[in-house]
Design a protein around this nucleic acid. Sequence first.
DNA 1: TCCTTTTGTTAACTTCGGTTAACATTATAT
DNA 2: ATATAATGTTAACCGAAGTTAACAAAAGGA
Lengths: 148, 148
Amino acid sequence: MISNSLEEYLKTIYVLKIQNGNIRVTDIAEKMYCSKASVNKAINHLKENKLINYETYGTIEITEEGEDYAKKILEAYDIVYVFLKDVLNIEAEEANIEAEKIKQNLSDTTLNTLAKYTHRVLGLSNLECDYDINKERCRTCVRRKNNG
Amino acid sequence: MISNSLEEYLKTIYVLKIQNGNIRVTDIAEKMYCSKASVNKAINHLKENKLINYETYGTIEITEEGEDYAKKILEAYDIVYVFLKDVLNIEAEEANIEAEKIKQNLSDTTLNTLAKYTHRVLGLSNLECDYDINKERCRTCVRRKNNG
DNA sequence: TCCTTTTGTTAACTTCGGTTAACATTATAT
DNA sequence: ATATAATGTTAACCGAAGTTAACAAAAGGA
């Protein structure tokens, strides 16, 4: 288990790599509005936790484990975001802010229950949805995102 | 604005005072599973923020402002707790743990929206519930609590 | 090539929220 | 009334997560 702060770094690294391919300390610092020194510390911690590979002055690579972790973080965000935006009808920008704040604090079981509830209420999947955050990315949430 | 940590101390002080009348540093430390030294620091911070009155070796008194603040913290907890327990049907103990973790991070507007949603889904108040977390304690949540 | 700019690292420091241990004060029991 | 127990305070410390500033390394242009 890593801290919320490190989770944010990992998530940012994962997203930036998908968007931009390669990625530098400076990119992360800009995206997260923090100093390069903070990023440097963070990536060394992530390395200690085997979530990324990194050598001094080298390139940042996410490990298998790190990728799974990052996906789970994003998945948790999606579950909360979709609930706030499409069930509670909270405006997108506000829903985004709130989802970012909450997602880290929810247990797997709560996230699973919330996902199933949202799917049911929105008619996105049948009642006996067997979604499990630890097994796979939520197809219905993904579909919603892809459809706008 | 005080930190989440200080909010927890304030909430605990408020609840203990309601339950036990007077209250000591030791009581707070026991309830929060922390050292008396931590409590001492916290109450001095709360005092600086005018949320409690305290003199060295004296008694701990909550100010008007502190009481309002504590009530709001409890209210936020209730809103999340009732949603988790009665809408998502999460088991009480788990709902309690999760509500404790989330409540601090939600904005007033999200809390209001969530409260109204819960009331509507549970049929606890009419659709045009004008509940506002900053104005008063939620009567429907209170009623639910009192009725078990 | 080599000089300059960009990028990355490190050291020293800050704040927050906690700890333990030593000490001070207050309360209690005989 | 006083010894002892309980309670409260303070000092010195820790780790997490950030900062700035100085320095090191890499990249790019003339």
